[in-house]
Amino acid sequence: MRVAIETILLAAVAGLLVSVSAGALGPLVVFRGLSFLVSAAAHAALGGAALALLLQSRLPWLDPTFGAAGMAVVVASVVGAAGRGGRSGESMEVAVGVSFAGSMSLTVLLMYWLPPEKLPLVWGYLVGDILLLSPVDLATIALTATLSLAAITAFYREFVYSSFDPVGSEAHGLRVGLYDWIMLTVIALSVSAMTKAVGAILVYALVVAPAGAAVRFARGPKHCMALAFLISAGSIAMGLLLSAIVNVSPSAIAGMVSAAFYLISLLRVE
């Protein structure tokens, strides 16, 4: 099956927008050693969507998107609270793991009570496809790209300083807890929204691996963000190109290409 050129173009636009978010946020995730947060945020969205669907019997206006966003904010808040007082590294990583397990457990529990016809709506939060984008999906990705760029533009130094030296930054007067919360919330919201639109594989592949490769070559945080964007965009371009020629999933190819970039970067001796 050949994919229509319009679909490929639409997917290319989406890929570019996802790469913008990945370039802005991926390095922050890597700087903080919180790559697992990407996975936790996506699965928290799953739990939040399930909860919203269950509550719809009493609150018909409650869209699952609100539930997904709300749960992503909860995860960001839990991880941020775990890192308060300079206990960043290990405590935050543990909080990410616990949030992941907690939200998946909640999802399983809630799905037990949900009517069977609503279950695909829940799973839809993990299995988006870049070749099956709806206008709402595209708008969501555009919104997260804007949110990511706005956050990094407004708080670039605050995010970098909090990542480099949380204790020293707080001692000099930076409100590390607040900026950590903003950063984690933007990451969690963006990742959960992008996952619904383009699928978990693509988001993991384009947020973490390109940033992991870029940080090994970068001369500074901005350089790292630019490199992560290029690797991300290059991976998705390769995926779409191959999928136009042969019948393969563009997300899978993009994931393999970005993983290859990361593996190659490991050869660099620092």
Binding site: G33, D165, A171, H172, C224
Partner: peptide, 25 residues
């Protein structure tokens, strides 16, 4: 701070580090 409290994962130039406390204040 103890230099062990500083993250090595963030690629910063020396001048960027030197500016940090001043810009925070």
């Amino acid at each position: 701070p103890q230099k062990e409290e500083v993250s090595w994962g963030v690629p910063l130039r020396v001048i960027d580090v030197a500016l940090m406390a001043r810009l925070i204040k």
